[in-house]
Amino acid sequence: MFQIIGIVVLFAMVFGSFIISGGKMGVIIEAAPHELMAILGAGVAAFLISNSMATIKAMGKGFSSAFKGPKWKAQDYRDLLSLLFLLTKTMKSKGVIALESHIEKPKESTIFSRYPKLMSDHFAIDFICDTLRMMTMNLEDPHQVEDAMEKQLEKHHHEALGPSHALSNLADGLPALGIVAAVLGVIKTMGSITEPPEVLGTMIGGALVGTFLGVFLAYGMVGPMAARMKDVVDEESSFYKIIQAVLVAHLHGNAAQISVEIGRGGVPSPAQPSFLELEEALSTIPAEG
Score class of each variant (00 low, 15 high):
V183N: 07
S192Q: 15
K188N: 04
A218K: 09
G201S: 07
I204M: 11
L213Y: 15
V186S: 02
M203R: 05
T194S: 09
K188P: 00
T194Q: 05
P197I: 01
L208I: 10
V186P: 06
T211L: 09
P196Q: 08
G214Y: 13
K188I: 01
M221P: 01
A218I: 10
L208S: 10
Y219L: 13
I187C: 06
G201I: 05
G205S: 10
S192F: 04
E198F: 06
A181P: 13
K188E: 02
K188W: 07
V183T: 07
F216I: 07
I204H: 04
T202R: 11
L213W: 13
M203E: 03
V215E: 12
A181H: 11
G201E: 08
A181S: 14
V209F: 13
F212R: 08
V183L: 14
G210A: 15
T202G: 14
G220R: 12
G185H: 01
V199I: 13
T211M: 13
V199Q: 03
V199T: 01
E195G: 06
T194N: 08
P197H: 03
A181Y: 14
E198Y: 11
G220D: 04
V183G: 04
Y219G: 15
A182P: 12
F212N: 14
V215C: 10
F212L: 15
V183R: 08
G206K: 02
A207V: 10
F212T: 08
L200G: 01
A218C: 06
A218P: 14
T194A: 11
I204N: 08
G214P: 12
S192D: 06
M190N: 01
E198C: 07
A207F: 10
L184K: 08
E198R: 03
L184E: 04
E195W: 04
F212E: 04
G201W: 06
G206M: 13
T194R: 07
G185W: 02
M221F: 13
G191F: 02
T194D: 09
V183P: 06
V199C: 04
V186F: 05
V209W: 04
T189F: 00
S192K: 05
T211G: 10
M203Q: 11
T202Y: 05
P197D: 02
I187L: 05
E198S: 13
P196T: 13
M190H: 01
I187S: 03
A207L: 09
P197L: 00
T189L: 05
G191H: 07
T189C: 04
K188D: 03
G191A: 02
F216S: 11
L184V: 13
T194F: 06
G191T: 05
G214L: 15
L200T: 01
G191P: 03
A181D: 14
G205T: 01
G205I: 03
L184C: 12
G206T: 03
V199S: 12
A182T: 15
G220S: 12
V186Y: 03
G185T: 00
G201L: 09
V215N: 10
V209P: 10
M190L: 12
E195S: 13
K188Q: 11
M190C: 02
E195Y: 06
V215I: 15
V186I: 12
L184G: 09
V186W: 06
V209T: 13
L200F: 00
V199A: 11
V209C: 10
